[in-house]
Amino acid sequence: MVKLKIKDVSFSYGSVKALENVSLTLKDGEILSVIGPNGSGKTTLLRCINGLLKAETGVVMVDDIDIRRLSRIEIAKLMGMVPQLEDRRFPITVFDAILVGRRPYMGWKPSLKDLEIVSEILESLGLKELALRSLSELSGGEFRKTLIARALAQEPKVLLLDEPTNHLDLKHQVEVLNLLRKQVRSKGLCAVMAMHDLNLAIRYSDKILMLNHGKVYAAGTLDIITQENIKTVYGVEVELFRDRHGRILVSPAS
């Protein structure tokens, strides 16, 4: 079933076109990576999907509902967004930070259900031991997971992630993405993530969208990862290898 459908979305900052006629569709349990060089419109696309930026043309539909007809709170119940890491952290506990994800659902006092949902997410993401620790004490990987947990607490249908592996070491990159994939598959969500690391994008995505100057240069399954496409979009000569499982690896040639 099609969960997220984006058709002909365009956006410009003043006179600078940032996105032009971007379209994509995602089904339950699918992960799509948006790749492209810096300034190609990855973050702008995520913000347009979320409605934080109003797309000038085109529609974004979640479960066949046009998000333009929804309030911000209603959108928050459908989509969870994990922005890029913010460096300043407030001394708020991990539990409270995740509980914030219940804001669209609750009044002043969180209900028992809210607390249960948060506890469950903490368990399944292996953050239980950190529940009452302050965000300011967490490592980068733990903080990242907390932010994802917060987005999951919104009980969304769509997850939007802006470079979820940025600033993380290899272990945490893999950990965060594994966890993400598990959640997406088991809960039947779909995820759109902006990625810089092509190899991780290939490893964890079902679909790839390649942006170049705000336009879709190529989109589809992993087949679009070719030497020519990468050369045109990134301006870098690469060689493609296959590991012993037959998975593609991208390596700069020079």
């Binding site: 928050a76 913010e86 917060r150």
Partner: peptide, 8 residues
């Protein structure tokens, strides 16, 4: 950004 995405 997080706050905005939560409807604040």
């Amino acid at each position: 950004e997080t706050a905005k995405s939560l409807g604040v």
